[in-house]
Structures are given as structure tokens and as C-alpha cells.
Design a protein around this nucleic acid. Structure first.
Length: 561
RNA sequence: GUUCUAGUAGCUCAGUUGGAUAGAGUGUUGGCCUCCGAAGCCAAAGGUCAUGAGUUCGAAUCUCAUCUAGAACACCA
């Protein structure tokens, strides 16, 4: 319909204006609205109402438009309003029904490496790791659904200063290789990290251990591999629970073998400079409002850093996968690091044509608005959080079923993920365990509940192979059908803006309308066979869409809710 | 200090990039289970979109200033 309108405007005013008909925010008046008459009024120095009326008049002559819309009118200041005809609405739904992926036009395929998760070795996963995991997984599923070839890499932080710190801590306790345990690691890590902030001498020792490890010191290597083994197992367990999976389990340490070749490249391209004993790559631009410090490639003690391994990782990815895009999602506080990194890549011939994106996540705060801590003052571990939510759920006297452990885990996942993903990712949000345990209102369980009670109707009735007829039976019926038509726009917008929250919010609105339909329209005892069939087809489509969208959010469906 | 980001109902948040009467959840008040699942549905109340100017037919959305909060700012990740 954009095309038809564009032609009409061109014919009327000889102006090739880009026409964009939007979903109406006044559903009492129409389904779609065009507000371009105001802009035309300005350029043409005419009354927008006159322009709107002229457009409507021309629309009435167009056989396609009059067939598709039961009402086209111009109102008050100059809005052009369109109301879908029942038959066209159902045509569109039938197209969704009969084509793969609801007949949505997909963007062209690209190979994308998605760098998410970002867990640090030797440190148990805590709430801070929740968003990168859940959000990253959802982005992966969204991009995959939208026809992209996505390679997910956990990219463990496994070779930085923290490893030196932990090794130092283990040495101080005379801990032998075989006595290293997860508990020990999770105790030593925060201890050492605090100690290094106070004591410059110890910090230096840790830095040197890190350096020697990177240089291949066999003793430290042994410790490193043991720590990595133990830690990875634990990290995997948590990611498994969350249904977060990766195609690649690489980390900083895997990038080290590419550093020599990378260094040679950077040297021949004359990118490296000496500065205060370190080797750096300047990335400041004259247009910068604030000075961007140079990218540090190698420290003055010759050790390498996060940035170096990131760059070496890009080198490796380019050689192995040749991706069009690399997307990173981490805490938003790493913003500067990534602008530096991306600027380096723009200067470096090998990586110049890769398209980089950084999706910075807001921090999770406590109810006091400060970074989240437990009552004891610790950052809570994810595992503890899962059991707490599970307990709160089981202690709810209103729940009506016995749950299998599998169903319980699915429900806990739905609670956490829906609570997280409905937020705008770049904004910080307040983490409140009570809110995160909610099962009423705008929550994961609400969606699951809606799905299951609808699905129950379909169990009683055989699915017709037929298409929808031309009839719409009442307002609840129509509201639901109109909502289903939004799907394409929703998926596209979520894809382009990398926002699973768009999907979560749509999913909720869809379920609200589904529940209204449910309460007002009873199917099982219906005598009108055609009506019954239509509604079963409609509910089939609706539940299928709910299921697909839940899957994009990483939420499974339990047998009961 | 500089630069970003934010400030929307008591609380927690949406608001598809400038459109018509600013929306949800939660909390409060009232109504709905002889009918497919009441973790549901329906209704009421709740707002100077931080403040003040400006841009224009039209601003929560764009500009500027002020206030408040948070983040980043060279060898951490």
C-alpha cells in the first residue's frame, strides 16, 4: 500500500516523497495512518486538510486500495486513515499461515561472529554475567531467525592479570595443583583483587607472573591449565542451565599464537609507536570532542593486554571465518575500549572492511540504585539466585500443579529471561529478587500460561487444513488478528535495532489480546462449524508465533504452568 | 574537571526516531469462576513526561541552559 500511495502523491503533486504508512495509535479510528500531508502542506503552501482530502479522493479511484480497505478517510488536521477490510486482513493472515516464517521478507545473509558471555575464568558467574549471557543468546537466536549465519564465541577472559593474581594467591597458600578447587578459586579471586588495589608491590608481582605465564613459564602454565579446567566446567554448568550455548569456546589465551604474525603486520603497516615505554597505536581523531587515548598494544613490561588479545582474536576470526560483521556485547563500561579497538581495525588493512558493532549493556543495580550486592555485601552468585527464585515459586500457595524438575527449571528460566529482556539493554535496571520472582502480570509465566491454556483448546479439536474464511466475528477476534499482522514489523525492527525487548513487549501485548479473546469467545461448544474452524486456525497461528518468539528469547515451554 | 548516558503514575518500566486523547505491570478500590486453565478477565483512581526557554501546523521525542543521578577518561578487563 506504500507503493500505491506513493504513486498517487507523485501523480497529484509531482513529488517523489518517501511514503511511510504507520500503524495507527488510535485504533478506535483506523488501523493505519499516513501523516505525510503535513509535510506536503509545508512544501506546497497548502492546507493539509485539503491535501489529505485530495489524496483520499484519489485513493477511492484505486481498485487495489478500495478492495483492501473498507474505509479511507481524511480527518481533522490532515491525517489520512485506513481501515483494513476483513477479507484483505484474512488474506494477509492466510499468507502468513501458508508460507515459511510467516511470509516475512528476510534480510540478506551475512556471516556474523557474536562475541558474548565474556565470563572470566576463576570467578564464579554472578548477576553481572546474567545480562551478557541472556541478551547475547537472544541476539544470536534473533539474528539466526532473520537468516544470518551466526557464530557465537564465549571469548573467556582467561589470560589477563586476574590469572596472575590467582596463581600468586595459590602459591602463597602452598596449594598444589591437585588441591585446587572451585571454592578456593572463588575465595582467592576477590581477596587478591582487593589486595592488589591496596598494595602496589603485590600488584607488580602478580603482573610479573602474568607476564611469565604469557611467555610460557611451564610451572605457571600447569597452574593455568588446571584453573581453566575447573573453572570452565563450572561456567559451562551455569550456561547450560540458562540454555546459553556457544559455537566456539575460545578465549584470550587462544589468541596468543597469532600475536607474532599480527605484530609483523602492524609493523610493516607502520601502525605501532613507542610511548612512555609501551607500544601503542594512536587512534585519536581531530573531530573528537574529548581526547581518545591511544590503544595500548604492549605494556612497558612487555606483557600484552585485553586489547592485544582482542585484536589478535579478530586476526584469527578474519583468517578462519572471514565474517562480514563482528558484534560484541558486554558491559557498557567497556565502551571506550571498543571504540579504540574498532578504530585500530579501521587502520589495519586486514580488518578494514569488517563491520563492527558494540552493544553495551547497562549495569544491574540494587534497589538502592547502586551496583547490586547481597545483604552480606557480596555480589550474589547465579546459582544461588536460581535456587532462591525456585523456592519463592514453590512456596507460592496459589500454584496448582506438581512440577517436574525439568518444568521447574524451564519456569525459572522464563521468569529470569523475560524480566531481563523486556528492558532496554543499554539502560541500567534495578535488580529486585522479589520482582524477578513475580509470576503475575508482565512476566514469563504469564506468557507461558497464555500459551498453555490456548494450546489446551487445540488439543480438543482437530486442526483444519483449510484457510481462514473472509469473516471476522467480533472485536476481540479482530484485535487479535490485527496484532498478528504486526509480526513482520516487530521482527524487522528488533533485528535492525538489536533489541529483543521489542519482541518481549510485542509478545506480552499479543498474549493480552489472546487472553481477552479466550475470556470472551468459547470454542468447544460452538455449533457454527465454520466459525469454529476459523478460530482454531487463528489460535493455531497465534500459538505458533508465541512459541517462535519465546524461542528467540531463549524461553522453553513447560508441560504445565 | 571534560565527555557521554539518563530523569515519564506511589514503585518498576514501555513509548518503532516529530503526529491525533502519553501507555503497561505492580500497588490501591470495586466487579467476574453451574461455560475450553481465575498465575486470568473487566472497570475506577493515579501525570506540569526533572525545570526553564527555543525550533513549528504539532515536542516525552529535536536545540540551548539549569538541577539531579550514573558511567568513562594510558599500561585493569
Amino acid at each position: 500500500m506504500n507503493n500505491e500511495l506513493q504513486q498517487i502523491i507523485q501523480k497529484l503533486y509531482n513529488i517523489t516523497e518517501e511514503v511511510n504508512i504507520k500503524k495507527s495509535n488510535r485504533p478506535d479510528l483506523c488501523d493505519y495512518q499516513y501523516d505525510g500531508a503535513f509535510n506536503l502542506a509545508k512544501t506546497l503552501h497548502q492546507n493539509p486538510l485539503d491535501i489529505g482530502n485530495a489524496i483520499v479522493e484519489e485513493c477511492q479511484k484505486n481498485s487495489v486500495l478500495t478492495a483492501n480497505f473498507s474505509k479511507i478517510e481524511c480527518v481533522k488536521p490532515g491525517f489520512v486513515n485506513f481501515t483494513l477490510s476483513d477479507s484483505y486482513l484474512n488474506d494477509l493472515l492466510n499468507q502468513m499461515l501458508n508460507n515459511p516464517k510467516y511470509n516475512i521478507k528476510m534480510p540478506p545473509e551475512e556471516t556474523i561472529i557474536l562475541d558474548y558471555g565474556g565470563a572470566n575464568v576463576a570467578k564464579p558467574l554472578h548477576v553481572g554475567h546474567l545480562r551478557p549471557a541472556i541478551f547475547g543468546e537472544s541476539i544470536k537466536r534473533l539474528l539466526t531467525y532473520m537468516n544470518q549465519k551466526v557464530i557465537g564465541d564465549v571469548h573467556l577472559g582467561d589470560y589477563g592479570l586476574q590469572i596472575g593474581q590467582v596463581i600468586y594467591g595459590l602459591q602463597q597458600e602452598n596449594c598444589s595443583l591437585e588441591n585446587i578447587t572451585l571454592e578456593k578459586l572463588s575465595r582467592i579471586y576477590p581477596q587478591m583483587s582487593a589486595l592488589c588495589k591496596e598494595d602496589a608491590e603485590i600488584k607488580e608481582k602478580c603482573a610479573n607472573i602474568t607476564k611469565e605465564l604469557q611467555d610460557g613459564n611451564p610451572e605457571y602454565q600447569k597452574y593455568f591449565h588446571q584453573i581453566l579446567e575447573i573453572s570452565k566446567k563450572d561456567i559451562k554448568k551455569i550456561y547450560d542451565y540458562l540454555g546459553v550455548s556457544f559455537d566456539l569456546w575460545l578465549g584470550e589465551s587462544d589468541a596468543y599464537k597469532y600475536i607474532p604474525a599480527l605484530t609483523t603486520d602492524l609493523e610493516t603497516e607502520n601502525l605501532l609507536e613507542e610511548s612512555e615505554g609501551a607500544r601503542v597505536i594512536p587512534v585519536a581523531l581531530p573531530t573528537d570532542k574529548v581526547e581518545i587515548p591511544p590503544f595500548i598494544y604492549q605494556k612497558s613490561n612487555k606483557a600484552y593486554l585485553y586489547g592485544t588479545t582482542d585484536l589478535a582474536t579478530i586476526y584469527q576470526r578474519k583468517k578462519d571465518y572471514n565474517p562480514q560483521k563482528i558484534i560484541y556485547t558486554t558491559d557498557i563500561r567497556q565502551n571506550l575500549h571498543f571504540t579504540q579497538l574498532f578504530r585500530v581495525c579501521q587502520k589495519y588493512s586486514l580488518t578494514k572492511d569488517i563491520d563492527f558493532e558494540f552493544l553495551g549493556l547497562g549495569t544491574i543495580n540494587g534497589t538502592d540504585g547502586k551496583p547490586f550486592k547481597t545483604r552480606a555485601g557480596n555480589t550474589p552468585k547465579l546459582e544461588e539466585m536460581f535456587t532462591e527464585i525456585k523456592e519463592i515459586f514453590l512456596n507460592n500457595p496459589e500454584h496448582q500443579f506438581e512440577y517436574t524438575p525439568q518444568d521447574l527449571d524451564i519456569i525459572v528460566n522464563s521468569i529470569i529471561k523475560f524480566a531481563d529482556l523486556q528492558n532496554n539493554y543499554e539502560k541500567s535496571y534495578i535488580f529486585d529478587i522479589d520482582k524477578f520472582s513475580k509470576t503475575t502480570g508482565k512476566t514469563g509465566p504469564y506468557i507461558l500460561y497464555t500459551y498453555l491454556r490456548t494450546k489446551k483448546i487445540l488439543e480438543f479439536n482437530q486442526t483444519p487444513v483449510d484457510n481462514l474464511s473472509k469473516t471476522i466475528y467480533n472485536v476481540h477476534d479482530r484485535n487479535l488478528r490485527i496484532k498478528l499482522l504486526e509480526l513482520e514489523n516487530v521482527l524487522n525492527y528488533a533485528f535492525i535495532s538489536r533489541m529483543p525487548s521489542v519482541i518481549a513487549n510485542y509478545l506480552y501485548e499479543l498474549c493480552v489480546l489472546m487472553n481477552a479473546f479466550y475470556e470472551n469467545n468459547h470454542i468447544n461448544n460452538l455449533e457454527d462449524e465454520r466459525k469454529k474452524q476459523d478460530w482454531i486456525i487463528l489460535l493455531n497461528l497465534t500459538t505458533k508465533i508465541i512459541k517462535d518468539l519465546l524461542n528467540i528469547l531463549g524461553i522453553d515451554i513447560p508441560t504445565k504452568m
